[in-house]
Design a protein around this nucleic acid. Structure first.
Length: 503
RNA sequence: GGUCCAUUCGUCUAUCGGUUAGGACGCCAGAUUUUCAUUCUGGAAAGAGGGGUUCGAUUCCCCUAUGGACUACCA
């Protein structure tokens, strides 16, 4: 391998929200670049003016920013290769298109899209290539004067790459090894359209990767079939081609096929990093961020979908991933998207957060429920409850009773735990509690247990009824941790209310 | 239809010719617990099929099957 400096790019098209598979591609590029001390470039491939969606570019940048995937050069940052938006590079492409034309490696074609459609429905498996191009309307089949006249008359045309047939083109893929495709199955790809004076993806991509000195092209497997075309293009320009690595696809969790936005809607999980509102339809799609995912968890989860470090380690920070990542440990086959495992990763990362950090994230949720609580109390509660949840917002379901006294009591639990003697015992318990000075968990527990022992009550019966009265159902952490947090007054009030209410 | 890529527990995957085929998620069971969770322990669960090569194939080769991607003046 050449000693070229590692430079990779993530080159999305601003046609909508960034798909989670695209995020993974960006991540692998990033990990690879950083591991080799190389550069990561963000290029926006907006050569299709038809499909441009306003806001998409900003969305992409914000998403990657949230996830901690950083760029060294590109749109929004600048750099020696600027501009990084392909629509701003028209003149550059024109020059290279002309070079191909002058060298006889490409030609001008006048066939309209309608004519081609007609031809395709007419002739089965029609392909615009060496076997058919002389029958078409182009600068190869027509006299030069006619071509010039048509152009002078303002007739729209495209420039097609002239592919020589019957040649085995070898793509050396870092993940898949040698992939050989015969050039005869390739068509004379359109490289440039006079209508909008823009190149198509293939030309723009090759020119930019060359000009930006990209050393490795790491992209989705959907590009593998066109990789030979790209190799041929590099050869036509006499440029050194970058190394290629085609990543396996992210598949639907159930059934088969590529993971799509629809699957997320259908199965109820996000396929986009951030919430996205389609400017045309107004449809809103959920995002990982809004669903309560920690960026670290999304990164870790995605990293392991198609790659592994070769041992049993699963929890890895971005820095560790950068250390451990390698293209030759990427799998070749597609990975079904396992949303359940994603949740588990989030659970793991929540456990790693400090109580203060978690409390800060929980505060807005409390506010939504109309609860005002001081940070210290929330921190303590979060510390008690975090191991039970996958998401910060689940904290509310688990711990709302800390903030709001139960309005009603779970029927099943009441039936099972509230005995005939419970009202009397709970009233007695109120007396015991009211006499306690130090209401800390340890002290309260000691005194209450002494009382239970002295009275020879059944510990389980007392505690379960106590819990029902304070929490409203049969759940929650250690009882005395709860009472210490809600305080003596509230504890007693809840007990009295339960005695008056539960039958 | 054509071309290319792929194929180990339900899912993500380990294994670079010799293993009781390992781990994780999920699932089930048990233990712990004043409840619910958590946690811990255990369990069920896999080499698509057929041919070769080899003393020996999950591993290498071929065929078949299945899945996927691509096959635009989209990326």
């Amino acid at each position: 391998m050449s000693a070229r400096k590692v430079r990779v790019r993530f080159a999305p098209s601003p046609t909508g929200a960034l798909h989670i598979g695209g995020v993974r591609t960006a991540l692998y590029n990033y990990l690879f670049a950083k591991q080799h001390g190389g550069d990561m470039i963000l290029r926006i491939e907006d050569t299709d003016s038809q499909r441009f969606v306003p806001g998409a570019e900003e969305y992409i940048i914000e998403s990657l920013n949230w996830l901690g995937i950083k760029f060294d050069e590109g749109v929004g940052i600048g750099g020696p290769g600027a501009p990084y938006r392909q629509s701003e590079r028209r003149d550059i492409y024109k020059k290279y298109v002309q070079q191909l034309l002058d060298g006889g490696r490409a030609y001008i074609a006048f066939d309209t899209p309608e004519e081609l459609d007609a031809k395709r429905s007419d002739v089965a498996n029609f392909q615009y290539d060496a076997s058919t191009r002389m029958e078409m309307r182009n600068s190869l089949s027509m006299p030069k004067e006619e071509v010039d006249a048509l152009i002078a008359a303002g007739k729209q045309y495209v420039v097609r790459f002239k592919i020589e047939p019957n040649e085995d083109v070898v793509v050396n893929d870092l993940i898949r090894g040698e992939v050989v495709i015969n050039s005869s199955i390739l068509d004379d790809k359109v490289l440039y359209k006079s209508a909008d004076e823009l190149p198509t993806y293939h030309l723009a991509n090759i020119v930019d990767d060359h000009l930006m000195d990209i050393s490795h092209v790491i992209r989705g497997e959907e590009w593998l079939p066109s990789a030979p075309l790209h190799v041929l293009l590099y050869r036509a320009f006499e440029w050194e081609a970058p190394r290629f690595a085609h990543l396996p696809l992210l598949l639907k969790p159930d059934g088969n096929g590529k993971l799509s936005k629809r699957d997320g809607d259908r199965l109820g999980f996000p396929v986009f990093p951030l919430e996205w509102k389609d400017p045309k339809t107004g449809d809103v799609s959920s995002g990982y961020r809004e669903s309560g995912y920690l960026p670290e968890a999304v990164i870790n989860f995605l990293a392991l979908l198609g790659w592994n470090p070769g041992n049993d380690q699963e929890i890895m920070s971005m820095d560790e991933l950068i250390q451990l990542f390698s293209l030759d440990r990427c799998s070749k086959s597609g990975a079904k998207f396992d949303y359940e495992k994603g949740k588990w990763f989030n659970h793991k990362y929540i456990q790693q957060k400090s109580n203060a950090e978690l409390a800060a994230m929980f505060m807005p949720v409390l506010k939504e429920h109309g609860v005002e609580a001081d940070a210290e109390k929330v921190e303590a509660i979060v510390g008690l409850m975090k191991e039970r949840v996958n998401f910060v917002k689940e904290l509310w379901d688990q711990s709302s009773f800390f903030f709001i006294a139960p309005e009603q009591y779970d029927e099943k639990t009441a039936k099972k735990r509230w005995k005939a003697e419970s009202p009397e015992q709970m009233t007695e318990l109120c007396e015991v509690l009211s006499g306690i000075e130090d209401f800390s968990a340890a002290n309260t527990e000691e005194i209450v247990k002494e009382w239970i022992a002295a009275k020879e009550y059944h510990l389980g019966n007392i505690m379960n009824a106590f819990r029902l009265a304070v929490v409203g159902e049969s759940k929650g952490p250690h009882m005395f941790d709860i009472t210490a947090l809600i305080g003596k007054e509230d504890t007693i009030a809840r007990l009295r209310k339960a005695v008056a209410t539960i039958k």
